[in-house]
Structure formats: structure tokens, C-alpha cells
Amino acid sequence: MNMKDYIGIGVLALIVAVMPFAVGNDYYLGVLVFTALNCLTCIGLCLLLGYAGQISLGHSAFVAIGAYASALLTTKLGWNPWAAMGAGIVISLVTAVLVGIPTLKLKGHYLAMATLGFASIVHVVLVAAVDITGGPSGVSGIPRLELFGLALDTDTRIFYFCWALVLVALYFAVNLIHSRVGRGLQAIHGSEDAASSLGVNITVDKIRIFALSAVFASVSGSLYSHYVLYIDPGPFDVMHSVLLITMVAVGGIHSIWGAVTGAVLLSLLPEGLSFLSEGLAQFNIQYKTDYDTLIYGAILLSIMLFLPEGLFDGIRRSFSFFSKTNTETERGQ
């Protein structure tokens, strides 16, 4: 069953391996590092949204918790970056469970609003708690990660490390989906009543997958801190949560590969748009980066209106390798 997924991971690993040779430019490698970080968060979010069917507009908060735990524990208390990342994971996990217990009782619109409220509160605290977080001026001087005595100080090294983590996360996610636990989650999505009549503890399982996705987001945030070396609350506002959901939805929520597709495409979109603006400039048409947001929204809306199963599903349907014998009966998975 999951052979195709393992092949997919293998293919992605090959692409990752040759990418730094194909992309000679550190700037673009950097863009691909951010792409990897978004992939990591989106893989977790997809498990929650696409498989368990629970929406969260609060994952920017977990990215922020990871990023700030790494930044503050290393700069203020002199912790080892790995220990700080671990602490970030623990804090995110505990927060996710505490927030998840009351929040995941809610459904649909209410769940979306409650998680959005949670993310907004975390952002307000990041800005307001100047004594701890440095407020709007943020935290600087964050150390780099070191792996077996090897500093992750070049874009190539960080590129490989982050994408290796994406591959590991994909491996975990694929295994989970095809397990008893994964089936339980998909059952919750299908019908909560039927799932619990078969012995699935829907309350606990929802909280567990919420917590797992929070951990992925937290690791992504920590890596961001140790790569950029300076953070402020700016990137962690609710718009980031919305962007993450956009990535998962554009790619297609029902497949982990959809989440990866969406994360890659939308992370690269600003670069594509800047190419476009150079091209347009030759014809004396001015394109401002201010319009990027508008284009994100337009893409999301078009996908939701015309291709609600997402881009990956569309791509998959056009390739016979990925499609099963009777495509018309196929939904999800």
C-alpha cells in the first residue's frame, strides 16, 4: 500500500541531493530552506486537517513557540541550541495539549475561530512582553546549529539538514497514515459517531494529532531561528497561520503529498512573481511586491472554486502512475 509513498520519498530525496548542484546561488538555496521549513509545518498540519479533519488557524503560534524557545534559551540562558529546540518541542507539546483539550471539542467554524484567537493571543504576547521577548525589536545573536562538531553555517549544509528533516517527517507521516492510528484519524474525519462506536477515542486522538502537528511546527520555528539568527514577532502573526492553511489547501488537503506540493509552490511563488515583475518591467508595466498577497488569495480562491481537491490531485489524475484503476470512485487518500 505505502510502496508508492516510499518511492515518492526516494524521488524527493534524489531531487534534494542534486539540488545544491543545480542551484549555484546561495540566495535561492536560502529560499529552498524556507520552503523546507514550510513543508515541515504543512506535513503536520495536513495530518490534522486532511486526515483527522480538524482545522487549525493557530499553527503560527507553535512555529512562534519553537522559534522563541530556541532564540531566548540560547541567547539569554546560554543553552545548547539542540536543548533549546527540545525545550521548544516540550513547550509546544504541553501548550497544544492544554489548548487542545477545550478547543478540539469545537467543530468547523468555531474551531477555526478559537484556534485563530489562540494564535492572535500568542502574537499579542510576543509583542507586549518586552521584558522577555524583546517586543517588536525581537531577539538577535542567535547561535547556529552544530551537528557532530560540524557547524551548519553554509546555506548548502542547512539546506541538506532541513530537507533531511522534511524527508524524515514525510516518512513518519506516511507510516502513520497507513497504520491503525491513521485509520482512526481518517475515521474521525468521516464520522465521529461511527468512529467512537468502533472504539476510537476521538477526544484523545484529536488532541494527540494536534500535539504532533504542533511539534512539527515547533521544530520548523526552531530551525528558522537558528538559520536567520534574528527573530521578531512579525513573521508569526495570524497571517502566517492563514498562509500555512493556504499551502495545505492549494496542494490538496487529502494527501500528504498535496501539502508538500502546496508548501513548495507557495514558498517559491514570491520568487516567481519577482521574475514576472522583471519581465513586466520590460513592457513598462509596474508590479509591486505589495500585490503578492492579492495573488496568494486569488490562487487559493481559484483552487477552492475549481479544483477543491487541490493541485496535487489534479496532477495525479493526469499521470496514470499515481491513479488507481477507477478514478471516478476515488476521493481522498
Binding site: T246, Y291, T293, L294, Y296, G297, L301, M304
Partner: peptide
């Protein structure tokens, strides 16, 4: 889920247009 994401998309579009 689809309706939530659609209204979110509209909000992004309006916000983007307003910023532009």
C-alpha cells in the same frame, strides 16, 4: 472546511488589494 477556506481567500484578496 471549503467554505471557511473560501471566505479566508476572499479576506486575503481584499487585504492584498487594499495593500496594493
Amino acid at each position: 472546511l471549503r467554505l471557511i477556506i473560501i471566505t479566508i481567500a476572499v479576506s486575503i484578496i481584499v487585504k492584498g488589494a487594499a495593500m496594493g
